[in-house]
């Protein structure tokens, strides 16, 4: 409720207690759209620099981070007032990043420089630059925060970076144009999507060295195989379900987290890119870049319940934690 008091004018609205702010970056609109996770109504839309893409929030909900790709920096916003607080150096063309579970530091992929930049969110200093493969993109951090993953789109690897030494400790070759990486919450598995390869690699992390145990492929009758391009991935906390956004096929694949078999495909908006859970995992929000909307998936029912118009070309999504 505190946020509504801070918002002043909006405090007259009857806000349900369990609502969370949903933040959607609009790549073309240069804005962030804010939705209410209870009513799915738009609360606000605020300017977010040039070409906002990657978006994440501090674990305690205190700061919202947006990759302003064309400004070559990360913009930091107050998630309640939507005011820009300051910026963080990111290196050129930041696209995706991941935040340490403690809220500090931020690990940022710099597509143009073959680097992962590590930035202290408190001092705003660059702590390290880690050379990786060509066109770094996807970022993930292991649950124990010991390893940061970066995927490089032209080198086609998942690089395992030690968060203590900033050294690369493993490289796993995956299929063409890896876009996104996601750990299971117990740290035993890593999923890596390959957009042009059309697969999701399942990487086993329980042995000494990581190894690919399976490549998940996708097939939808009547849809050209070329359009089944996996991008965003989200895994439920209990690892029972894996959701994969399939780009221009306008589908989200639902995968059994035990067997890693595709169970079904949910039809969402056009060119589905990234995914975000509400903190209770009741809902999954998908950003649909070509239809300028987000689809809301009921996670338990595995059904699309709603689509909500947002700004131009929605790219990323993050939901504020419970406060």
């Amino acid at each position: 409720m505190i946020k509504y008091l801070l918002l002043g004018g909006l405090s007259v609205m009857a806000a349900p207690a369990l609502a969370n702010n949903v933040f959607v970056s609009n790549e073309r609109g240069n804005t962030v759209t804010v939705l209410d996770s209870e009513t799915w109504e738009q609360i606000a839309e605020f300017p977010a620099g040039n070409r906002p893409r990657g978006i994440t929030i501090a674990p305690d909900g205190s700061e919202l981070y947006v990759c302003s790709s064309d400004d070559d920096l990360v913009r930091v916003y107050d998630p309640n007032t939507f005011e820009e607080l300051h910026t963080l150096p990111s290196g050129p063309d930041p696209e995706l990043f991941v935040i340490h579970p403690s809220g500090n530091p931020l690990y940022i992929a710099n597509e143009d420089d073959n680097l992962v930049t590590v930035v202290d969110t408190e001092t705003h200093q660059v702590l390290a630059e880690v050379p990786v493969g060509v066109e770094p993109e996807g970022m993930a951090i292991s649950p124990d925060a010991g390893i940061v993953i970066n995927t490089s789109e032209t080198t086609n690897m998942a690089h395992f970076i030690d968060t203590e030494t900033y050294e690369i400790v493993h490289n796993v070759l995956v299929d063409q144009r890896p876009r996104y990486a996601e750990f299971t919450s117990d740290g035993s598995k890593l999923y890596v999507s390959a957009e042009i390869g059309g697969t999701v690699s399942v990487i086993d992390l329980t042995a000494d060295a990581p190894s690919i145990t399976k490549k998940i492929t996708f097939e939808v009758p009547g849809v050209q195989p070329e359009w089944l391009q996996p991008v965003g991935i989200k895994v439920t906390e209990d690892a029972s379900r894996v959701f994969v956004a399939l780009g221009p096929s306008n589908r989200v694949a639902v995968i059994d987290g035990e067997t890693d078999e595709v169970l079904e495909y949910l039809l969402v908006g056009q060119r589905v890119w990234q995914l975000g859970f509400t903190p209770d995992e009741k809902f999954l929000i998908t950003t649909n870049g070509n239809s300028n909307d987000v689809s809301i998936i009921d996670v338990e029912k595995e059904e699309v319940i709603k689509s909500v118009q947002v700004g131009q070309q929605p790219w990323g999504v993050v939901v504020a934690p419970d406060q």
Binding site: N114, G133, V134, S152, T154, T155, M157, H159, N171
Partner: peptide, 10 residues
């Protein structure tokens, strides 16, 4: 250069 960047890991 692209090939070298990848090659250094292998």
């Amino acid at each position: 250069d692209d090939n070298r960047t990848t090659g250094q890991f292998l």
